[in-house]
């Protein structure tokens, strides 16, 4: 209920793992202790192993199982990942994991005259429970679910059955891709738009929302900093002042790589929201792929700083720069 709460870790048992779309597995967990069913918009943190190291990932709660105590997650395998999503996909029935209670950073606000829910790809996991709650209350809502292709769309059949005409499927390779301006225009005045999807989709919606002069607080979104404009690549990071240089593998964050080579960095949210892990960009050979929501568009354009928990650098060729030679990217930074 509260916007944030102290994390309480407890053990949970894996009840089921099954494929629900291409590269998407549904994971059902039963925690040994559960104070309350997960509210719409909430997520859990789960302990994972990445490259043999313990780490933490966040996953939206798709919903509660039939008995009200099973937490249903939907996990997309990130491309080429040996990271958190690979760990999640490798879970087996009966296995024990460590999770937090449901945490809420994306609360649904009841009592609004109208709602639009807009999911892109695996972002659907954050909005399934909201759709169900709005339907249960008889709210006026529209549900828009977009993806590159139909095979990638987890839970689509169930959502069609549940929401009927209120649900619109937008599929890029069927020529019905999401029209962002139309989406924003379709939110009635005083209504709220809830968005969960990849960064480019979110950026486009934020821009359209601002361009339409809509009230910023009525655009609700959540990000785990998990996607950018480009697929992750390995790159080199240098901190001349500290005499440090290291390679950031494609499945490791810049923050983690810097910590591993001895840099003492401050951070907190690890999902590109809080701004604590910001570093100064001194030079970049390549293109910065900002994945945070802390900096404004103008600050992203300026390119003189980045949030190293989520943001990355790709080669000039990947980034589409003219005359690029395909050399791996190098970023030179300074840290507080």
């Amino acid at each position: 209920m509260a916007a944030t709460s102290a994390k309480k870790w407890r053990r949970a048992r894996v009840l089921d793992v099954c494929e629900v779309a291409e590269h998407v597995r549904q994971v059902v967990l039963e925690p040994e202790h559960l104070e309350a069913p997960a509210a719409p918009g909430s997520h859990i943190d789960i302990g994972v192993y990445v490259n043999g190291r313990a780490d933490v990932r966040s996953y939206s709660v798709v919903g509660m199982g039939a008995y009200g105590t099973e937490i249903v997650l939907g996990v997309q395998l990130a491309r080429q990942s040996r990271g958190g999503s690979a760990y999640m996909h490798a879970l087996r029935r009966g296995q024990e994991v460590s999770i937090t209670q449901p945490l809420q950073n994306f609360p649904l606000n009841y009592g609004k005259p109208a709602y639009v829910l807009a999911a892109g790809g695996i972002g659907i996991t954050a909005l399934v429970a909201m759709g169900r709650a709005l339907k249960a209350r008889g709210a006026d809502y529209q549900f828009v679910y977009g993806a590159r292709s139909r095979g990638l769309m987890a839970f689509a059949d169930e959502l069609v059955a549940e929401h009927g005409d209120r649900l619109e499927l937008r599929v890029d390779d069927e020529g019905t891709g999401l029209d962002v301006a139309g989406l924003v225009a379709g939110v009635p005045d005083g209504g709220e738009l809830y968005v969960c999807g990849p960064t480019p989709m979110l950026d486009a919606i934020k821009a359209a929302w601002a361009a339409a002069g809509r009230r910023p607080a009525d655009l609700r979104f959540e990000t785990f900093g998990s996607s950018g404009r480009f697929a992750p690549e390995a790159f080199t990071v240098r901190i001349p002042r500290l005499g440090l240089e290291t390679v950031v593998p494609h499945d490791v964050s810049m923050l983690e790589a810097l910590e591993a080579c001895g840099a003492d960095l401050m951070f907190d949210c690890r999902r590109g929201e809080c701004g604590l892990c910001q570093v100064k960009v001194v030079d970049v050979e390549g293109v910065i792929d900002h994945r945070d929501v802390f900096l404004s568009d103008a600050q992203h354009q300026a390119g003189d700083r980045l949030q190293c928990c989520v943001s990355r650098v790709v080669s000039a060729r990947t980034g589409g720069l003219a005359g690029a030679d395909g050399q791996p990217a190098v970023v030179t930074i300074d840290v507080p």
Partner: peptide, 18 residues
Amino acid sequence: RATFMPAQETINPSATVH
């Protein structure tokens, strides 16, 4: 819902009170 945050140009999307 937060509508202003100090020393940054954006609003943290998690910034809400009940």
